[in-house]
Amino acid sequence: MANSTSGDSVTQRLVRVLDTFTPARTVQTAAEIGRRAGLPPSTAHRMVGELVDAGLLERDDERRIRVGMRLWELATRSSQALSLRQVALPFMERVQARVREHTQLAILEQDEALFLERLSGPHSGANITRVAGRLPLHASSSGLVLLAYGERDLQERIVRGPLVALTEDTITDAAALRRKLAEVRSLGHAIAPGYIEAVSTGVAVPVRDETGAVIAALSSVLRRDDPVPPALAELNAAARGIEGALGFRR
Rank of each mutant, 00 (worst) to 15 (best):
A238D: 06
T170K: 06
I128L: 15
V131F: 05
A175H: 10
H189N: 05
E183S: 14
E183G: 09
A132E: 10
V159L: 14
P162W: 06
R160Y: 02
S140K: 00
S140N: 02
E197T: 06
A231D: 03
T129K: 05
R118P: 01
V207Q: 11
E156G: 07
V205I: 14
G143L: 09
V214A: 10
I191N: 05
A165V: 01
L154Y: 10
I128F: 13
R157H: 13
T172H: 10
G188L: 06
L114N: 03
V199D: 12
E151W: 02
N236T: 11
S219N: 10
E197G: 04
P136R: 12
V131R: 15
V207A: 11
R134G: 00
A217H: 06
P229W: 06
G143K: 01
G125K: 04
G188H: 07
E156D: 15
E168N: 08
A237G: 13
L116T: 05
V205P: 11
T172Q: 07
D173S: 13
I191E: 15
A190N: 08
A148E: 08
E117W: 06
G188R: 02
R185Q: 14
V145L: 13
H189A: 14
S141V: 03
P227R: 00
R134N: 09
D209T: 03
V145R: 08
A165P: 12
L147C: 10
R223A: 10
S120A: 15
S140V: 03
